[in-house]
């Protein structure tokens, strides 16, 4: 019968239930991914999850924190899944594990653990790996070849001899190469290549993105996330890609293609919505999302990396406290008329 501080009632929300719902919302995307790209993603998720949980437990122990509430809060799993889903599915196992380690040990616990990290841990992992192992992080499975599951597994285990045969450039790579190397080639021609283009976005990946979208909308519905950050992010990508596309449709892909390629949808609903490293006010989240969207497109189209979501989010993480400071909402009774 200890002292309990009022209120005595609670909505009974918990960090665990929030994280569990995020994981649940990722399931459709994972399922479509496993079916269309390859079940190897499940193996990657397992590797990332196991590493992340082990790292979490070890760090908690080192920091003298209670294990149970934190290992089971689900936050490490969310990070692990995002790492698995943003890394190439045929990345070698140690790369995925390394990413998970970087995320949990450096990006999360060295900054103080749950709730304290200024950067999105999964994006820190992605950035660290793409900078350190650019080649491995760019090996995306070819979607036109009939790759067998066993080949993918061998690749992950690092014993595959002919890795090159499995991989091909991603649609975004193709676009960028076209933009750089053959400025004259009309983009429509490149895009008409069915190896790259699906219905509206990148071939096959657009289906995975649509599944993420489904999960994201569900998260919105059950109010785990708010609309501001995703809307801002998508608006940012669409706005800049539309401007470029209208300016020169010969050189730039249409907005919808960009939204349904790479990590944009996953980013919009599962990454820029990370509360810890993002903004807290509604206006701040809109700004955060929009700026990240603009940056993501810029890096993706004009930068040196295949996709821009990770770097744009990290840069915005850096700005979040400032944005929060500048978007502090007026309190009750203090509004200007």
């Amino acid at each position: 019968m200890d002292f309990i501080s009022p209120p005595y009632l609670s909505r009974n929300a918990s960090v665990r239930s929030v994280m569990a719902r995020v994981l649940f919302a990722l399931l459709p995307g994972v399922a479509v991914y496993a079916c269309l790209i390859g079940p190897v993603i499940l193996l990657q998720i397992a590797i990332a999850s196991a590493t992340a949980l082990a790292a979490e437990a070890a760090m908690l122990k080192l920091r003298g924190k209670p294990l149970r509430p934190f290992v089971t809060d689900g936050s490490a799993l969310v990070t692990a899944w995002l790492i698995a889903l943003t890394f190439p599915p045929i990345a070698p196992w140690w790369l995925t594990a390394f990413g998970a380690l970087v995320a949990i040990v450096i990006a999360k616990h060295l900054y103080g653990g749950l709730g304290q990290n200024p950067f999105n841990p999964a994006m820190v992992a992605f950035a660290a790996c793409i900078v350190s192992f650019p080649a491995l992080m760019s090996q995306w499975p070819s979607l036109t070849l009939e790759t067998r599951f066993i080949d993918q597994i061998l690749a992950v285990l690092g014993v595959s001899k002919e890795l090159d045969a499995l991989t091909s450039a991603t649609p975004l790579d193709v676009l960028k190469t076209a933009l750089r190397l053959a400025p004259g080639t009309p983009i429509a021609e490149t895009l008409s290549d069915t190896k790259i283009h699906g219905f509206i976005g990148s071939r096959t990946w657009e289906c995975v993105a649509a599944a993420y979208l489904l999960g994201g909308l569900w998260l919105l519905r059950c109010k785990v996330i708010r609309w501001h950050a995703p809307t801002g992010f998508l608006a940012g990508v669409v706005a800049l890609s539309a401007v470029c596309w209208l300016f020169d449709p010969g050189r730039f892909a249409p907005p919808l293609f960009h939204v349904f390629s790479g990590g944009v949808v996953l980013g919009a609903f599962f990454i820029v919505t990370d509360p810890v490293s993002g903004c807290a006010s509604a206006k701040g989240r809109l700004i955060f999302g929009f700026a990240a969207g603009i940056l993501a497109y810029t890096i993706r189209v004009f930068g040196g990396y295949p996709d821009g979501v990770a770097f744009s989010v990290l840069i915005l993480n850096l700005c979040a406290p400032l944005v929060d400071l500048m978007t502090r909402p007026p309190v009750f009774g203090m509004k200007k008329k």
Partner: peptide, 14 residues
């Protein structure tokens, strides 16, 4: 009125 579970860190969910 179930006693509250242990306090966790703030995740700035807003």
């Amino acid at each position: 009125f179930p006693p509250p579970p242990p306090e966790m860190p703030c995740i700035r969910c807003g």
